[in-house]
Amino acid sequence: MKKKDSLVEKERNRQDLGFGTKMTDRQTRLITGAGQFNVKRVGQSFEAWLNLYNRLITVRWSGFFVLVLCVYLVLNLIFASLYYLIGMEHLAGVDMTNTHSQFWDAFFFSAQSLTTVGYGRIAPVGFAASFVAGIEALSGLMMFAIITGLLYGRFSRPNPRILFSRNAIIAPYLDTNAFMFRMVNEKSNQIINMSVSLVFSKVEEKNGVRSRQYYGLTLERSKVNFFPTNWTIVHAITEDSPLYGETAESLAESDAEFMIATEGIDDTFADAVHKRHSYFNDELVWGAKFKPMLENDGEERYILDLRKIHDFDLVSLNP
């Protein structure tokens, strides 16, 4: 019983980020460079797959406006077709002598009804046309209420622009070496109480079974109160580090990945913001040192050049 209890306790204490131990495919990262989980779901219900609100909130602005324009045009085409089928004689003010412009008169009357503008040149006559116009006016009110809510949601949603260096590096550090990467807030707003956690993951083989293991890496500094400039994250590779004795070849063989989670408070929205990133083993440069990004312009002001976030020099590592 004691042996079973120890095995259970060991499993309880095993570190796991939520990916499990079965993700051991070669050259397949767990978190993409864009910070998304590299997991594709299948067998979902249509409602879960659609996830409409999330899609409309997170889609790019260009895609959002194109979608709104398409919905607007399609609705007007549908209602214009209904007016045309009912009969153009039921729309007072339409030029009945010009057959080519009748549909477009119905289309623009639909646009006026949908937006409740109502210029007055064309008006519905009879129950059928009036009923369709009433339904369209209600649809327009609901559509624009939804669009207004989505616009508010998109503007009020914190969207952190945290840049990470293209590569992580192994650099000389004090009397040893260290794993480092660099990040910076691209926006001019401020992020406070910024914290970072770093997890090293690799595939290990025990008793002929390959499983993925996770190791939290101790950082030189895991939290800063202010984040006004770039921040170089440092994990010293000491004898008690999971990276101690690792080489570029051993990391490639074990499909090593370094996963990063950041969290802070955006002072514009007074809301928590977070960002994920990862470095795969082939994005790690051995023997490098980041170039400075911060300099003084000679006018009692500091200049932070974001274009230099990826720049480094090759150097010799400590023995």
Rank of each mutant, 00 (worst) to 15 (best):
L138P: 06
I31Y: 01
L17N: 05
M259G: 04
P124A: 01
L7G: 12
F46E: 14
K291T: 11
N98R: 08
A288F: 01
A133C: 10
L85M: 13
S197V: 08
D267S: 15
V74C: 09
N185C: 03
L314Y: 15
D305A: 07
E249D: 11
M142F: 15
I57Q: 11
H310R: 11
A171Y: 00
T116H: 11
N230F: 10
Y215T: 02
V8I: 15
M183W: 03
R210N: 08
S101T: 13
E239I: 10
F46R: 14
G43M: 04
G298Y: 07
G43Q: 03
L150T: 00
Y83C: 05
R212E: 06
R182F: 09
L317E: 03
G18S: 04
I86K: 04
K308T: 04
N76L: 06
P292E: 10
I192Q: 02
K40G: 12
Q190F: 14
N225K: 13
F19R: 03
D16P: 01
F144Y: 11
M180T: 02
H90S: 10
A123R: 11
D105G: 12
F144N: 03
L314G: 07
S278M: 02
L67T: 07
L114G: 02
E205P: 00
E220V: 10
Q102T: 08
G33L: 05
T97D: 11
G264A: 08
T262F: 05
A137S: 14
P124R: 00
A256V: 03
R161L: 11
R161T: 09
N185P: 00
A256W: 02
E263L: 08
Y302E: 14
K206A: 11
T232G: 02
V74P: 02
K223T: 11
S201P: 01
H100W: 08
A178E: 00
R210S: 09
L17A: 03
A129G: 05
I135L: 13
L17Q: 07
L30T: 01
E295F: 13
Q36Y: 12
V117L: 15
A288L: 05
N159F: 04
I162R: 09
K40C: 08
P124C: 01
N167K: 14
R26Q: 13
D105K: 11
R55F: 08
T116F: 12
W61A: 15
T32S: 07
R307P: 10
V203D: 12
T24A: 05
F19N: 02
T262G: 06
E246M: 11
F258H: 02
I309Y: 07
E246A: 12
V59D: 09
G118Y: 06
V209E: 14
I31H: 01
D313C: 08
V224M: 06
